[in-house]
Simulated assay, not measured.
Amino acid sequence: MTVVTHDNELARRARRGDPEAAADLLTRIRPGVLRYCWAHLGSLGRGDQTPDDVAQDVCLAVFEALPRYQDRGLPFTAFVYRVAAHKVADAHRGASAATTRPIETVPEPIDDGWSPERHAVTADLSRRLLPLLDDLTAAQREIIVLRVAAGLSAEEVGAVIGKSPAAVRMTQSRALARLREWARQHAPDEVVA
């Protein structure tokens, strides 16, 4: 069973109320959603939401919408990353209107299994890579984030953004060439290939 078929089957079972399928589905989608949010929001997040907060909102929204989900032959990940794109956009809008306000209590951190070192490395990598993504077109940026950060296949990305897998691969190739050229110009000693 392919990953796409497996995810769609898990979604159907979770929709029917199977708690084991719901848990398996969450385990499968959360890491990619988290990477997607980190890639779009950076290490500090936007406003009062961190990438981890937004990823949690995405997972919650996916499961709240699951009773209305209909398998139309597309990968379930297309549904997930459409929700993620809306939540990331909401976080960006919220950051624009964010105001500082005191909080009553500090929430407990979510145990994502990452060590403090991994969080630090991820934050540093996000801080250094996000300016590179700003040099891409919006379509190129979204494809790179979905392919590299979220780990989706070209077919899955195509389903998310409404393009053919071939168009996704072509746009990805152009984006990577643009990033390589930028890196050659700005950090020639660090470029390997």
Rank of each mutant, 00 (worst) to 15 (best):
M1Y: 06
V4T: 12
D7W: 08
N8K: 04
A11E: 00
A11V: 03
R12D: 00
R12F: 02
A14N: 03
R16G: 10
D18W: 06
E20Q: 08
A21Y: 03
L25M: 02
L26F: 07
T27Q: 14
R30Q: 09
P31Q: 05
V33D: 00
C37I: 06
W38V: 10
G45I: 03
R46E: 11
R46A: 11
P51W: 01
P51F: 06
D52K: 09
D53V: 07
D57P: 02
V58D: 04
A61N: 14
V62D: 09
V62F: 05
A65V: 08
P67H: 04
R68E: 15
Q70L: 15
D71Y: 11
R72T: 15
F76K: 01
R82F: 01
R82T: 11
R82I: 09
V83M: 04
H86T: 13
V88A: 05
V88H: 04
D90H: 10
H92I: 07
A98T: 10
T100M: 12
R101Q: 11
T105H: 11
T105K: 14
V106F: 07
S115F: 12
A120S: 12
T122I: 09
T122Y: 02
D124K: 08
S126Q: 14
R127I: 10
L129P: 05
L129S: 09
P131G: 12
T137H: 08
T137C: 03
Q140H: 09
Q140S: 08
R141S: 14
I144Y: 05
L146Q: 00
L146T: 03
R147P: 03
V148A: 12
A150S: 11
L152D: 02
S153H: 05
E155C: 04
E155K: 07
E156Q: 13
V157T: 14
A159T: 05
I161P: 00
G162I: 05
V168P: 00
A175Y: 00
R180F: 06
R184N: 08
R184K: 13
H186A: 07
D189H: 10
V191P: 03
A193F: 13
